[in-house]
């Protein structure tokens, strides 16, 4: 069995990439494949609490996060500097982020990508 990292880097509201990346993660997990997620850039919006998208905005992908543990997807990584540094682009997220994420420092984040046999980017 191979271990897989799904890297989400697209906004959940500008296209289908984020959704289709999550779909692949769920299917891999359904087939009992080891899969972790990491989230960066525009995809960080996925983690914001209290989202209320309507049908026109698209599916509420944030709701999927709570269900990940039932698929044995236990690791969702972000890079701490993207949200927590003063003046960080996504600074407002730090106070308002889903609690299931693991924040990595830059070195850990960079090492992350070589720990998997395959990384798929969406």
């Amino acid at each position: 069995m191979k271990n897989t990292l799904i890297h989400l880097n697209s906004s959940p509201y500008t296209g289908l990439a984020c959704k289709e990346g999550l779909d692949l993660a769920l299917v891999l997990a359904t087939f009992e494949q080891a899969v972790d997620l990491c989230v960066s850039g525009p995809a960080l919006a996925l983690l914001t609490l209290n989202q209320q998208p309507d049908a026109l905005h698209g599916k509420n992908l944030h709701k999927l996060l709570e269900g990940l543990e039932f698929y044995d997807i236990d690791n969702v990584y972000i890079e701490r500097s993207e949200t927590e540094h003063p003046g960080a682009k996504n600074a407002e997220l730090a106070q308002n982020t889903w609690s299931g994420v693991t924040a990595l420092n830059t070195q850990q984040w960079q090492r992350l990508f070589s720990q998997y046999q395959q990384v798929f980017r969406f």
Binding site: K2, T4, D23, L24, V27, L28, F31, Q33
Partner: peptide, 11 residues
């Protein structure tokens, strides 16, 4: 094909 076919290919 479903994504299951991709999982099979991966493995």
């Amino acid at each position: 094909e479903g994504l299951g076919t991709l999982v099979d290919l991966i493995n």
